[in-house]
Write a protein that binds this DNA or RNA. Structure first.
Lengths: 184, 184
DNA sequence: GTCTATAAAGCGATAGAC
DNA sequence: GTCTATCGCTTTATAGAC
């Protein structure tokens, strides 16, 4: 609901209706609207951590990120949630502002760690800047999601991110992943 | 107001207060809220067309786009408007949905035209795909704006877009612009 | 744990005076 | 062209019965 309507416009009544209870019943489980939003964000982060957190830093994690983007295409609600909310929450007074800033810091750290590891292993072009790359990768990701939601340019988020990474890797990501796999 | 709060949350009363008139007074000039939104969007597009429309297709227009991004850093209200609104308007029922789809089509066309011209003049790497590049450039642009608004990763939208273009040009954009300038 | 009822506030829009 | 007043509706949140 927050994804489809944004936080401010999505109403507790609608959420309650979807859950099959009354609005007052919903507020029994979550004391107020912000608490519900926090719970939604926390739950989604748990899911995301499970899917990408297992991979070890390096090309393996980069592959997991692309794979995560690919799977996300089947969860449009989640994409909407973060596209709408990350824009809405740029306002400092927005209840999710602190969360969003923390989240960007968190995912940037993970990407920087993996890009640095990839560079140390000679997979990344030596002139590449991991921090800039990480920032640009997630920027591209976010922007492509908006185009995908708007159904313009017939875009694939995962393909776009993968193509962007390939630009900076010495070989295409898929090849690198196959090689790393074969070494085991 | 629509930029800071989003369309749904920004109220006519607040807009009217900023304009120094009453809410009913505001509705005398714009029959309803959607009409006000349309007027805001139209006015901003007029301004944007003036600034980039003069340049001829090719590296000149690419330079104008980067310059436009650079100047936008001094108009945070406008950036917020489009960041929040383009996410919010991904919902098909949103009053600005059709506008946003048209707008993406429009700016993509302009960029594709210029990237194709640049390729024909040998400024672009021959393997580059103008449509994909245009889509990715604006995706990167949108995503960097969100990071900039959130004040994470200490990002410059214009630098990011320029750096991305440089990846696909045979020489850095600045050098190409200097050369084209010198030829006159 | 779930409900109905309702409070208190804000919303877009309209009516009509000046 | 601007105002006050107000309608009708929706919002979050609370009170209290069951």
């Amino acid at each position: 609901m927050f994804g489809a309507q944004g936080y401010e416009s999505g109403s507790l009544r609608e959420v309650a209706a979807l859950a099959g209870i009354s609005q007052a019943g919903l507020l029994h489980h979550f004391p107020n609207k912000v608490a519900l939003l926090s719970a939604v964000l926390e739950r989604r982060d748990e899911g995301a951590s499970e899917e990408t957190g297992r991979a070890e830093p390096g090309v393996h994690t980069l592959g997991a990120l692309v794979e995560y983007a690919r799977q996300s295409a089947f969860k449009p609600g989640e994409i909407e949630l973060f596209a709408v909310l990350s824009a809405e929450a740029t306002r400092p007074e927005h209840p999710a502002n602190a969360y969003m800033r923390r989240r960007y810091q968190w995912i940037t750290d993970i990407a920087v760690e993996s890009l640095s590891a990839a560079r140390d292993q000679g997979h990344l072009r030596p002139d590449a800047d991991p921090l800039r790359l990480a920032s640009q990768m997630f920027a591209l990701w976010d922007g492509l999601q908006i185009q995908w939601l708007l159904k313009v340019n017939d875009v694939s988020v995962a393909d776009g991110v993968e193509h962007f990474l390939d630009l900076h890797l010495v070989k295409p990501l898929r090849e690198l992943l196959r090689e790393v796999q074969a070494q085991r």
